[in-house]
Design a protein around this nucleic acid. Sequence first.
DNA 1: ACACTTATTTAGAACCATTATAAACTACCC
DNA 2: GGGTAGTTTATAATGGTTCTAAATAAGTGT
Lengths: 132, 132
Amino acid sequence: MKYIDKLRNSGLRPTKQRLQICEVLFNVEKTFHFTINELEQKIKDKTDNKISLATVYNTVHAFEKKGYLKQIPINSNQTYFDTNVTDHHHFYDLNDQKLIDLENSDVGPINIKKKINGKKIKSVEVLVKLED
Amino acid sequence: MKYIDKLRNSGLRPTKQRLQICEVLFNVEKTFHFTINELEQKIKDKTDNKISLATVYNTVHAFEKKGYLKQIPINSNQTYFDTNVTDHHHFYDLNDQKLIDLENSDVGPINIKKKINGKKIKSVEVLVKLED
DNA sequence: ACACTTATTTAGAACCATTATAAACTACCC
DNA sequence: GGGTAGTTTATAATGGTTCTAAATAAGTGT
């Protein structure tokens, strides 16, 4: 069971709920973006038994902490997550309110010239807003 | 009165409340970042009469629409705004939860190679996350 | 100055995503 | 199997933001 090891290796107990959420999030061809509500719906569609909303929140946060998910920095009333945890960027279509991946290779190298004393760069994320 | 014209020119009636908010936001040396709560506090400090929270929200949104303020795309429980409406970017210090301006000149030119059909780029914003 | 229309302000309620709570349950280790 | 710590769960609470509808103020024409 591929997800059992993944979870155990990061100190998370492989519970039934977490494994089911892993299936929904990671057992797919393409990575994708989602809100908690959208994830809850996907779980309902794929699964017989119900998973509590609190568990969905807990699990998503646990996965984010372990680096299996990334939060997408965007101003919205709901938080967006990404199953693509490689370094990459996003288009945000203001008209359709849709996120589109922008691979690192689609953006020239970004050179941050300014340094902040005693701090190191953890990530560099580009958000390109689109309109019609 | 400098702000009266500014407001009238953009179709906003120069009310007492809006003018007071203009003073707090724009009549300062440096641009700055703020949340609605922080702005409310600044208004309280600088002003005798109270401005309703709803008015603060209304005004900030009106100013944003007119291009006098920018929302900063960042995941936080509160929305951050910026009185610096020039093209620029941000550091976000994850430890202190502080935003720091990053001038365009501190970031090399960003070349977005991917195009989306029928959409044009409205803005390109870089968020650089920092940690200790 | 006055009347009239339209925009704005306001307090409070409503909304809704997210977080906290605390009790029941389950995985894991000996 | 028994004990312990981690997890799930329904539900309540929180808190930022938006909505509502009535009161007020600004603009416009006379």
